[in-house]
């Protein structure tokens, strides 16, 4: 096995894992605290990408594009919370799933009307287009930026949840909703804030991926399922679980797609390996999910019982 290729794929896996974490953390936060299943979470990922693309093209600078797109995405999150999510908090999960499914159709079509059916490429500034030489490995600098930004966002989130007053409220809300209300804290504002935070994180993931894949309609539709796999494996409502599972899934998926055929060739014929490896690697993360659930039906880090 080629060490350079392996290192590159390892970093790609890490990058995928961190992006997944940004999407999954919002999902798990919103579910853990608001008890709300939001299928349309990935639409915010897509909107983040499109909004950032528009700003970047307008201002000619990706960094400014991201900085402006973040508050706008948060604002979109607030609107979605107020209009669609809030009336659904008291409903069962089935209603939430269906209504947010409808919301996906609405947002996807609206995005198509605004930005057109084709994707929008997001240009990077020169200093991010280059390569960085680390030892024998040459890496695109933008991918390193994604990893850096992902790690920073993760660290910020942990700090927020574990060491701030807002975080304390969030954790209290997750474990005891009536207590938070009893403390006289406006639970509606707290919920709106949490929802907007989740939206922003998903949007950030979309912004970071957009220069690589371009912003496109329906780009969130496959991400949302993978994010579900992440939070199921991690334990729904657990931030730590989401982080570990996201990295795990990101690495397994990336490395599986690159190296599974090589591994298979060790135990079977080349031909058999080349036919079966793509099929198995496509299913790999689901197999992992099934295996985890067979032993721990509530995921690796089940949150404490409410």
């Amino acid at each position: 096995m080629d060490l350079t290729l392996f290192t590159i794929q390892l970093l790609n896996g890490l990058q995928l894992g961190l992006l997944l974490f940004l999407v999954a953390s919002g999902l798990t936060l919103v579910f853990g605290i608001l008890d709300f299943v939001n299928l349309a979470h990935a639409s915010l990922y897509m909107l983040g990408a499109f909004i950032c693309a528009s700003f970047t093209l307008w201002l000619g600078n990706f960094v400014w594009g991201v900085l402006l797109a973040l508050p706008v995405t948060a604002l979109v999150g607030l609107v979605v919370e107020r209009v669609v999510a809030r009336p659904l908090y008291a409903r069962d999960h089935l209603d939430q799933v269906l209504a947010t499914f409808g919301l996906i159709l609405v947002i996807d079509t609206a995005a198509q009307l605004i930005w057109g059916p084709a994707g929008i490429a997001v240009p990077l500034p020169d200093w991010l287009e280059g390569q960085v030489q680390i030892g024998a490995v040459t890496l695109p600098s933008f991918r390193l930026l994604i990893i850096g930004a992902g790690l920073m966002a993760a660290a910020g989130l942990f700090w927020l949840v574990n060491y701030t007053r807002l975080g304390m409220l969030i954790r209290a809300g997750a474990s005891n909703r009536t207590m938070v209300s009893a403390l006289g804290i406006d639970i509606q504002s707290l919920f709106a804030l949490v929802f907007a935070l989740g939206a922003t994180l998903a949007g950030l993931a979309g912004m970071l991926i957009a220069p690589i894949t371009e912003a496109s309609i329906g780009m969130g539709n496959s991400v949302i399922i993978t994010a579900f796999v992440v939070i199921i494996v991690g334990g729904i409502g657990s931030m730590k679980g989401a982080f570990i599972a996201a990295l795990m899934i990101g690495l397994i998926d990336t490395l599986g797609r690159s190296f599974l055929d090589d591994i298979f060739k060790l135990v079977m014929s080349t031909e058999a390996a080349e036919t079966s490896a793509p099929a198995i690697s496509a299913m790999l993360i689901y197999i992992i999910m099934a295996a985890v659930l067979a032993f721990k039906p509530s995921g690796l880090f089940p949150p404490k019982v409410r």
């Binding site: 009336p87 659904l88 409903r91 269906l98 209504a99 409808g102 159709l105 609405v106 079509t109």
Partner: peptide
């Protein structure tokens, strides 16, 4: 061709 828009809105309305 943008029928998903009214359709999605209807879906939300039915649920609500």
């Amino acid at each position: 061709i943008h029928w998903h828009l009214p359709f999605g809105l209807m879906l939300i309305a039915v649920v609500l």
